[in-house]
Amino acid sequence: MTTRVLVAKVGLDGHDRGIKVVARILRDAGMEVVYTGLFQTPEMVAVAAIQEDVDVVGLSMLSGAHLTLAPLVVAALRERGSDIPVVVGGIVPGNDVEDLTAAGVAAIFGPGASAEEIVTAITTLVPQGH
């Protein structure tokens, strides 16, 4: 089955270059990509991910709100009984990787992450035969 990914901009950050580039990279790798649009709340992202029955949720964040908002997206999914993995890409300082991982974020892609690295990581997160 084709891997389905929901890419989302959560919070108030309007920088969407990264999310659009990554969405196209994932499509070129044969995945189906759904984009939420800007200014989503954690709850909106969780609801959309479950409705769209995606395999992975990808958050793109630049504004420094990742430590607050990414864990809330994970929590909103888990509260709804979903185990969809959440990955984060964007401006994430090295020191924050540990905190995000502890909050249940499955993978973190910092500035300069290659297309190959992102595709491989997402493929690894999706259960075999799915």
Partner: peptide, 10 residues
Amino acid sequence: PMSLGEVGRC
């Protein structure tokens, strides 16, 4: 409520 985590950040 939408400002949560964004105040003074960037």
